[in-house]
Design a protein around this nucleic acid. Structure first.
Length: 495
RNA sequence: CGCGGGGUAGAGCAACGGUAGCUCGUCAGGCUCAUAACCUGAAGAUUGACGGUUCGAUUCCGUCCCCCGCAACCA
């Protein structure tokens, strides 16, 4: 029997249409920092990630590569799974794929539940069939959304008239949930973080909601979860993918996974007050409005919190793109600087909620200043004095309230600032008190030894706070302290 | 009048009614325990523009200019 309180956090499942990029890395790392810090504070943590594998883009990509969709997504999912340890993700992270059989069953059960609830509801039905008109560019041989068009025309084929294709799809009665969503936003000011994003979604919902299509004709696009009771349609990818947040924890309990989940859903959804969802700002609507309405329609309580990240941009705030050549591959960064260096950068040097530029020059600067010259050098200088002059002693640091508070608000940068303020304070103390000098004089030697013990204590405190942020580094420092030795190699080599 | 965010030292950010702070970079000095690291100090900003409120505005209000996302059935 564990008395630990449960906590559930998830990343957005990356869509496997693209390779893992720095934005994914940032989201993974930030969610991992929260997960680790919650464990440090004594919570029982379920940490979820995975891959979103259905939908038209994936289907097309597989066709381009001349691969069966399943073969393509297997390869793509493997790539995402491989980078988790490279980014220092908690080893007990759950990895769900939307092509997992238990997820597919869960998504279908979700559909049926929404359908059934809608039949009884006075504002139902929640799922109904309707003609859906698609704008189709013959030149591209592709469906186009309004946002892709300029003056109602395809930008690549401006002389071609767009064809309007009528298709019968299932729709979700999003509009029925407007009031309930607005009430959710008003009642829970922390539902979406930061608050500007809550205002944004509130304003969006207030303007009125349109029901959205949640299925596609299987003859045109077969790569999706089959709609229960209608083989001619597959689910629209969002309707399937978002369900992963509950399918991952066994919803709707035992019959889905085929094995007993021991009340996993109750524990991770009900007792936690819902999931904490990390996502990019482009996902604001899907995660904080559409998904919440879907949960309501299924008779489930909303998520706990949606944390919205900004985008990682290139220099000058421009979008990263292959054609501009300003794309940064997280794996290259890790290869050159190490996992913890990347974790440091996305935790502290990139704005917690706004767009921020990422350049290798800035990265190197921050690395040298705060890792090599900062925590790395500090560890060396303290441990050198300790090794030569004092005996190893046990230290039991505790987490600072300010640190925990900052993380409770998902303000990872402020939490890091707190730790680095401590690092600077230790450097200042050494300079001001000059224990290295006092050691050489008989009258002051005792004071110097005491001071060195204090410095080691301070270093241990820093290490404890770094456990969530830079787990490898924290461990190395703790081992040095325990053995009372200088690091065998510099923690962070200057670059 | 579509929605939201932003314009603050060379760069990246903070503050948000009362002498404009931080990090990096630059310059000078100090220290030698340490990874040519560390510490101290200095230079550097008419806080996008113009009005208004106020004893006082970067901070509140109005107008304007510029930048970036989004504008739903593209993930």
């Amino acid at each position: 029997m564990s008395a630990k309180k449960p906590f559930y956090i998830t990343t957005t499942l990356p869509y496997v249409n693209a390779e893992p990029h720095i934005g994914h890395a940032m989201e993974f790392i930030r969610a991992d920092i929260i997960a680790r810090s919650k464990r440090l504070s004594g919570f029982d943590v379920f940490f979820n990630t995975g891959t979103d594998e259905h939908g038209v883009k994936v289907y097309q990509k597989a066709q381009q590569l001349n691969l069966a969709p399943q073969v393509y997504v297997d390869q793509a999912a493997a790539k995402f799974k491989e980078i988790l340890p490279v980014l220092g993700m908690s080893s007990d992270i759950n990895f769900i794929r939307t092509t997992d059989p238990h997820h597919i069953k869960s998504a279908q059960a979700f559909w049926q539940t929404v359908q059934k609830n809608g039949e009884k509801a006075k504002d139902g039905p929640y799922i109904y069939k309707k003609n859906y008109s698609v704008k189709y560019c013959v030149g591209c041989e592709l469906e186009k959304t309004d946002s892709e068009l300029v003056n109602g025309r395809c930008t690549l084929h401006p002389l071609q008239e767009l064809e309007i294709i009528q298709e019968e799809n299932y729709f979700f009665k999003f509009s029925a949930f407007q009031d309930t969503l607005l009430k959710l936003y008003v009642d829970r000011p922390d539902f979406v973080i930061p608050s500007t994003r809550l205002h944004e979604i509130h304003a969006f919902v207030e303007r009125g909601l349109q029901d959205f299509s949640i299925s596609r004709l299987a003859t045109k696009m077969p790569w999706g979860v089959p709609v229960p009771g209608d083989e001619t349609q597959v689910m629209y990818v969002w309707f399937d993918a978002l369900v992963d947040y509950i399918s991952a924890i066994g919803w709707p309990d035992d019959e889905v996974a085929g094995v007993s989940q021991n009340g996993a859903f109750k524990k991770w959804w009900t007792e936690t007050g819902g999931v904490v969802q990390y996502c990019g700002k482009d996902n604001l609507r899907q995660q904080s409005a559409m998904w919440q309405a879907m949960l309501m329609a299924a008779g489930l309580t909303p998520s706990k919190t949606i944390v919205i990240n900004g985008f990682v941009t290139g220099e000058g705030g421009v979008k990263m793109s292959k054609s501009l050549g300003n794309v940064v591959n997280p794996l290259d960064v890790v290869r050159e600087y190490g996992t913890d260096a990347l974790r440091y950068y996305v935790a502290r040097e990139i704005s917690p909620f706004e767009d921020s530029p990422f350049t290798l020059e800035k990265f190197k600067e921050a690395y040298n200043a705060n890792l090599a010259n900062g925590i790395g050098n500090l560890t060396s200088r303290i441990m050198k004095m300790a090794e030569a002059n004092i005996q190893p002693d046990s230290v039991n640091p505790i987490l600072a309230v300010e640190f925990i508070e900052a993380l409770d608000h998902y303000d990872i940068k402020t939490a890091c600032d707190f730790v680095w303020a401590k690092i600077t304070a230790l450097d200042v103390t050494i300079q001001k008190e000059e224990p290295f000098k006092k050691l050489k004089v008989e009258e002051t030697k005792g004071a110097a030894l005491k001071l060195i013990e204090e410095l080691v204590k301070g270093l241990a405190e820093v290490a404890l706070h770094l456990e969530a942020i830079l787990p490898e580094t924290a461990l190395k420092i703790q081992e040095c302290i325990k053995a009372n030795k200088v690091p065998v190699a510099p923690l962070f080599m200057r670059k």
